[in-house]
Design a protein around this nucleic acid. Structure first.
Lengths: 142, 142
DNA sequence: ATTCCGTTGCTCGTGTGATAACCACGTTGT
DNA sequence: ACAACGTGGTTATCACACGAGCAACGGAAT
């Protein structure tokens, strides 16, 4: 019941990219240096983000990574799902075939409610908003 | 990001015990038969429940298991935590030392909010209430 | 002695976190 | 053109931890 390191790093990466000037291409090693991830692992983490259309990449000299869309259109749920697939708290919540107690099980309903609440939080703030709040936090701590 | 089978079975077990006449002692094999768990695995699952004071046990002839307190005082969170320990969505949420970005990281706040919402749902309904709703669901489906 | 539960240790499979080798593509200098 | 170089892309592999489950033996109550 804990998010993976991959998801954590993916979020850091997207937030970092969103802090750069618009359309600025960032080197992999610069992401690594600032976000405490190793290049080999980051390589693996970035691919799902690219396939999900959150990040795009450019090869060759002057290549690197940048956001594929406006950060205001990216939520934490998008990043989570790119890395870990569909969010589910219990197996019975994904495919309804998985549990024959589905019809009457009152616990099922509670998991559903908890999951909904969680998804709602993860979609409530977009990356632009998170970057703004981070900037504010830093200002207040000085 | 999914609860373990142990937690799932533990919940089924507690709900099942709550459905029995008060203070009725239930055999392990009866729990197994009705809840689709193997005896060996259930043995493992019951121990944390006993240590958490949710279930109590009786050895010897006529022994078995029963709830250690009123089902209205047991929540899903209690059972979850007995099996999986403290609920946390990200490592940085448990011990504040784990992440030096703690102070300013705006994502941290979002995880916190999501976790709070989830905990609130898991403590909202007690076992008595869940049993009542299950009974109602069964009635309506007939 | 019998019938229960308790404890311990084990297996087996899968997922996480991480590394490395090699491949494919773009840019740039010639 | 084209070759060299600098990027990211793909794939295979690894150690390790954890989840899920099994079994054997020990201990208490009757």
């Amino acid at each position: 019941m804990v998010i993976t390191r991959a998801t954590e790093y993916a979020i850091r990466t997207v937030v970092f990219l969103a802090q750069q000037p618009k359309d600025e291409i960032v080197l992999k090693k610069d992401i690594c240096r600032t976000q405490d991830v190793t290049p080999a692992f980051l390589t693996k983490i970035l691919q799902p983000l690219i396939k999900a259309g959150i990040v795009s990449s450019q090869r060759g000299v002057g290549g690197g990574f940048l956001l594929a869309k406006d950060p205001s259109e990216i939520t934490l749920l998008d990043i989570f799902q790119a890395e870990e697939g569909q969010l589910k708290l219990n197996y019975c919540l994904l495919d309804s075939e998985a549990c024959h107690r589905d019809n009457y099980c009152s616990v099922h309903e509670v998991w559903h409610e908890a999951q909904d609440k969680m998804i709602r939080v993860l979609t409530k703030y977009n990356i632009t908003e998170l970057v703004r709040r981070e900037k504010e936090n830093l200002k207040n701590s000085n």
